[in-house]
Design a protein around this nucleic acid. Sequence first.
RNA 1: GCUCAAGUGGCGGAAUUGGUAGACGCGCUGGAUUCAAAAUCCAGUUCUUUCGGGAGUGUGGGUUCGAUUCCCACCUUGAGUACCA
Length: 1120
Amino acid sequence: MQYNHQEIEKNWQKYWAENQTFKAENNSEKPKYYVLDMFPYPSGAGLHVGHPLGYIASDIYARYKRHKGFNVLHPQGYDSFGLPAEQYAIQTGQHPAKTTEENITTYRRQLDQIGFSFDWSREVRTSNPEYYKWTQWIFIQLFNSWYNKDTDKAEDISTLEKVFKKEGNQNVNAVCDEDVKSFSADEWNAFSKTEQEEILLQYRLTFLSDTEVNWCPALGTVLANDEIVNGVSERGGHPVVRKKMTQWSMRISAYAQRLLDGLETIDWPQPLKDSQTNWIGRSQGAMVTFKVDNGSIKESSAIKLSYKELEALKELRQNSTKAETTLWNQLKNKKGASKFRRKYTIGAFLVDYVCVSKNLIVEFAAKEDEAARTAYFYNEGFNVIRFTNEEVLKNVEKVVSEINFAIQFPKVSVKDTAKKEVEKNENQYKIDVFTTRPDTIYGVSFMTLAPEHELVSKITTDAQKAEVEAYIEATAKRSERDRMADVKTISGAFTGAYAIHPFSGEKIQIWIGDYVLAGYGTGAVMAVPCGDQRDYDFAKHFNIPIPNIFEGVDISEAAHTDKEGTKIANSDFLSGLKYKKALKLAIFEMEKRGFGYGKINYRLRDAVFSRQRYWGEPFPVYYKDGMPQMIDAEHLPIVLPEVEKYLPTEDGKPPLGNATEWAWDSRAKKVVSNDKLKNKTVYPLELNTMPGWAGSSWYFNRYMDSNNEGEFASKESLDYWQNVDLYIGGSEHATGHLLYARFWQKFLFDKGIVPVDEFAKKLINQGMILGTSAFVYLVKPEIYADLRNRNNDGGINVITKKVFISSNKYETLKGDSKDLAQEIKKEIIEKYFPIQEDYVKIDIDVYKIHADISFVNNSEELDTVAFSNWFPEFKNAKFITEEDGTFKVSREVEKMSKSKYNVVNPDTICDEYGADALRLFEMFLGPLEQAKPWKTSGISGVYSFLKKLWKLYVSEDGVIVSEEKATKDELKVLHKTIKKVQEDIENFSFNTSVSTFMIAVNELTTLKCNKKEVLEPLLILLSPYAPHITEELWSKIGNNESISTAAFPIFDEKHLIESSKNYPISFNGKMRFTLELSLDLSKEEIEKIVLENEKTQEQLQGRTPKKIIIVPGKIVNIVG
RNA sequence: GCUCAAGUGGCGGAAUUGGUAGACGCGCUGGAUUCAAAAUCCAGUUCUUUCGGGAGUGUGGGUUCGAUUCCCACCUUGAGUACCA
């Protein structure tokens, strides 16, 4: 009987499915163990061999734990909402649900053939209404909660309302929006319902706000920070711009500290913890308030535009109407005193054209705020004339002559600045800064504000106005990306204003500079040039003094950024103190004097939760008087409506704006047609959908009780399974899924819904399996023909001809140089590109192009026939081969991808070698966490191992396993294997256990062992790795039950005890020979035997050893 | 720039309380079997050598009787992150 993997694997997969072998119960005598894989997004391309790596590892562990007597939960499902299905729908009109269903069918078939021990009865799909019902439910819970900093947990919003009613919000210590105004109980009670709702929204854990979002025009949606890589979208690499939109957000910042603290309690990979720590970005320091010097606030016509407004205007500038362009073409040529500028800002207004020297504004008529503009412009001393689009388009000459007339005969004679009303603020301006080094406050020699800082316009003096304005505009023109890319250039401008140092009372200059970011901290810094390199560079560049406040430190070349071990000097009460003490004292003094306090700052921003997409969870939200209302949980799920088109609507609404049945009837409690919106009790529903991470942030809890229709999951099941014991998945989710899931888990824990506040105890990141791409070299001549004799099409034929050169041949010809030698080029041209005409110059370029790996055999030889038929343009390709006539490709390791033609499909592997071989091979490739290249040729090793294993049990005549007693050597092999395999599995070192199995089988084959006493336990050891063949052999040697719950063999030390040891005998640490010695010998005895040995004498050549080191059972080292 | 991880044969990789470097597998070479091939089996395979040996785990130092393993400096590669005050 031969090993027939196809038949065996099919049979056992059928058996497991029919017998529900891996179905887990929610209660058991056995201890529980929960093994989880990150569930896949079912993409249209199906699985390649890289995908199952993590699933195989977790499956081995799950099966091992079953053998070890655990009640194992090992579920699988699909993260089935997502962009690719939606984009496919946009292109083809195919409903995403349909594509998703089809893809899942493929995935399921591919997963099943690998023989995973999943409990499919618990499958979840995030796009199923029965599932997302509970995603919506969690959203409602978040909406109905606020974060109480005093109790350090989320609480029901009703507790907050009670406090407001009783005492207003002065004493509430909550995580909330920054601009919450304070109110008393009376004020609260006097607020209208809408006003109250607006205020509560500022406290809720999910809230609506106008946020600057990352808008991706190409995808038509908003992206989270972690969905952007290097300024472009992670998916598709489209540009991303900042845009203001009303969006749902999640107050994840409330959990910043707990997310950080929780990392200490979980066994996750350090790099992953590091990146979460980094993402949360905690920094401890102080908030300090600097007053702006009164004298420096002059009467000033402020720059009225903030940076953000400038940005918005800039965008407008790019879209000119036809009339605007027509008129500009006429005006732009005016020179000198009548020069016009286009789209220029006057105060807070963007005017179409302005002639600054003549105080004349030219605008298109019918702007909304015309009256206000006119008033302002006159006040500022400008004359305004307006034209309609029609006038310009009809007769632009007439318009221009009117403008010329206005320039010559201005209506308002002089710009009268004296009239201007200037608000005099009595020292109102304060600048708050966050610093991690309050101990260096005496080193402050200037302050820097972000150009976007709101105070900039208010404090800039007249003298500096032009410079500051120019700088702001220059910064505005640079994109976020440019600013980040260019960190070397130092730029900034002095505002002319001064701040007062809170301790010393000295006047310090206030600058603006783009190295200060508006989005972090307060958008302002106190600059300590001696202690911060950026401040130092800035000070050097602009010649600002750099006071030294460190004792005995040279700062002539660079800032001194070390804090430990340095004493502070020249700092009044801080002088002579070291970092830690100075820090504490500085904060203490600030708090005492009332201009600062200790503070912890986090980089973590609240997470935007709205997506302008179709294929996601709809919000259980409708709008009444503009305020969001939750739909009662009993009416969930709110099912995704059908739409005609999956694109955003023409007026820019999200795709759900296309739905005709998308209104909430608050009386009938159901979704109704939009026609009914005119009714009083019918309201519009939310048009956004939830982001991809919504469904994946809690699915691990759903598996515990996935078919429960009445609850998120029953309390009993949650209490029983608690959390995931082992979670396996890719590291790319470090700051996305894994952070959000931890956040939701903590929230659910606060609300008493789940019993633990970390969802996964241990996490392993499996490494990527890379593809081995094949390349062929395309020879491309560049021939410069003599044009005088050239006929028309000769040259073109030559160029389109495809000639490939074999890899080794190319390398040889090339030699050490970068290019082919001139004479070789000439030879190739003459042989492969014969042309009639004379050429004046030739050159050859060699290009590397991907070849599909299916055309290449194990010896790197290309099937040139198959390759020629691959694409029509290769039809008549010529191949410059090696001397032996073969054509070789070159290889390179890259990410597995369709576009690189290096994808290996597990289907073909399972077909040819079987799932057991695939499983073993994927584990054998290398350590689980490590990235490693796939080479199909290597699989023959594990395949012949399986055949060898088979032969131990079955010969041509049938089963050969005997009941005979095993020999000592045979038992030794077995127990050695038990020990190693058990250790390896527990250390997740699956690659080494595969080699242990190979060694065991090789040794047992040599021993010709066929004893059941050894061979039966061996099957259990191997069954987590190769479940099909072991089930088959298990039943062949007389077992009726599945092997999956057989008890793991117990290691017995006694079989490994040795009586002697083959000692390595080293001289000066280098091993020269070995000597078999009894382990009973004492040190002295060993020394005597070794020294007497003739080989030792030979090594010593008469010298006397200085020292002899003997470690019994280990080594002998002779020095001298 | 910063942080982290890693550098071992032709290739994937093994070996850490410091104790025989290269397990296991691929590939390659030779042989057996076969009409032949596949499959299978046997032997060899770090480099070098004058066949005695000698060198060798990215490079240079150090600690040690002994270092792939520990320490210092540097180089290279990969990952993450980036003006975070």
